[in-house]
Write a protein that binds this DNA or RNA. Structure first.
Lengths: 207, 207
DNA sequence: TTTTTTTAGTGAATTTATTCACAGATAATA
DNA sequence: TATTATCTGTGAATAAATTCACTAAAAAAA
C-alpha cells in the first residue's frame, strides 16, 4: 500500500478518534462527523477511507468497533510496539511516565542516560540503563522505536547509536536537525518550531 | 500575505536553520543546501522564498544574516513573544525550563496549576500561579501564547480559560481534540499520534 | 579577457490533493 | 408500501503544490 503522508496522518487521527468513540460507547460515526473532528472535509475522509476499503453503511456511517479493529490490523497499530527513551532529563523523565503511550499500544520498555548518577536517582517503574548498554538492550528487548530526548549537542550521536542498534523508527524531541538514514522512519517534534509556526500564522494565515 | 501551511512550515524550518548557520558563522547558503536540510527540493525552497521576495545572490545563495533578519521582520519572529504554561505536571515543568524557548525569542513568563500545593513545591525562576488567576495574569503580562500541558480531562476547560483571557495562539500538548475558536491559531502536539504516524509509515511509506 | 560553472528567479508543465456531483443503498417516515 | 432523507463510494472536475526548463547574473577558471 502506498498512501500519502497527509492521508496517513489523517488515518492516525481517525484511529485515535475511533478509540475515543469506542470508549464512549458510540456505535457508528459518519464521514462528516469524523471530518469535523479531525479538521478535514467529508470528501477527503471518504477518499482516505476508500483507499483502505473500509466498509461504510448507508445512512449510518462506519461501525466504530470493527472499523477501528480493521485500521489497527491494516496499520499494525494494535500490536504493542516497544519503545525506549534516550535522555532522562526533565523531558525524558516526563515521557517515561506518560501514561498515554501505554494506553495506546506503545510500551516504553527502557530508558537510557549517560549519567550513571542520574540513573540511580530516577524513581520509575521502567528499567533505566547507561547509554553504553543501548545496543545490547534494544536487541534483547526487541525495541522498535527510539525516542530521543537528549540535548542538541548529543542528538546526532544518540541517533547513530539507535540506528546501529536497529530501531525502525525515531521520534526526535531534540531541537536540531539530525541525520537519519532513509530506511528509518522518523519524525521531529521541535517545540520551538511549533511556537514559531503559530506565531507565523498570526501574520499570514491561510485556511 | 497569504501563504499555505506547508510553505509557512518550511519557512519556519528555514528560519531555524539560518539561526544555526549564523551561530556557526556561515555567510551564505544556497537553496540546494537548505532543501537538503529541511527535507524539500531546491525548487520548492526557491518558490517559497520568492513569495517573500528575499534576495538571493548568483553563485552564492542567500546571505544568512540579512535573510534571517528579513524573515524575522516579515513574520515578526524576532519580537519576543510571551507565553504561559498551564499544567505543571512532569511535562509542564519540563517545558517551564526548556531553555530553547528563551533562546529562540519565546519567553515563558508564567506557569499555572490548579494545585496550590504543587505551586509551592515547584523550584523554578519563573513565576507560578493558581489557575484561578490566569485571566488576570495573562492580561497584566501581555501573554500571547498559551501552552496547554494538563491531563485530557481538563484540557477543554483550560482552553476556554485561555480563550477568554485573550491569547492569540495555543499549543496543545494534551492528547485530546479540543474545541478552539477559529480566530485563535492553534497546533496539537500529540505524542501518541506521532508514534502512531511513525508506526503506520513502517507499513505504508511513500517518499 | 573569454569561457565555464553555479546559482537565483520564474512561467509553464506536471503531478498530487481536494472537492464536487451524482449513483446506489437503506433507514426512517408517511 | 411508497416516499423521503441521508450516507457511502467514486469518477470527473477543480484546485493546489511541486517540479521542470530555461533565462539572467556573476563568480571562478582558463
Amino acid at each position: 500500500m502506498d498512501l500519502s503522508n497527509n492521508t496517513i496522518e489523517r488515518i492516525c487521527k481517525i484511529f485515535g478518534h475511533l478509540d475515543a468513540l469506542e470508549k464512549r460507547g458510540v456505535d457508528f460515526v459518519s464521514s462528516k462527523e469524523l471530518a469535523g473532528e479531525i479538521g478535514a472535509t467529508e470528501y477527503t475522509i471518504r477518499k482516505d477511507i476508500s483507499l483502505l476499503g473500509g466498509p461504510g453503511y448507508t445512512r449510518k456511517g462506519y461501525e466504530v468497533k470493527s472499523f477501528k479493529k480493521e485500521l489497527g490490523e491494516k496499520f499494525l497499530l494494535t500490536k504493542r510496539r516497544k519503545a525506549c527513551i534516550v535522555g532522562l532529563g526533565r523531558l525524558g523523565t516526563a515521557l517515561l511516565d506518560y501514561e498515554n503511550f501505554q494506553e495506546d499500544g506503545f510500551e516504553i520498555v527502557a530508558g537510557f542516560d549517560c549519567s550513571v548518577n542520574k540513573i540511580e536517582r530516577i524513581r520509575t517503574s521502567i528499567d533505566v540503563f547507561a547509554v553504553s548498554r543501548l545496543e545490547e538492550i534494544v536487541e534483547a528487548r526487541d525495541i522498535e522505536l527510539g525516542i530521543v530526548a537528549v540535548p542538541a549537542e548529543s542528538a546526532q550521536e544518540v541517533v547513530d547509536l539507535l540506528t546501529k542498534a536497529g530501531v525502525k523508527g525515531i521520534l526526535n524531541f531534540s531541537p536540531v536537525k539530525v541525520n537519519i538514514p532513509t530506511h528509518i522512519v522518523h519524525l521531529d517534534m521541535d517545540f520551538t518550531n511549533a511556537l514559531r509556526f503559530i506565531a507565523a500564522r498570526f501574520i499570514m494565515k491561510k485556511t
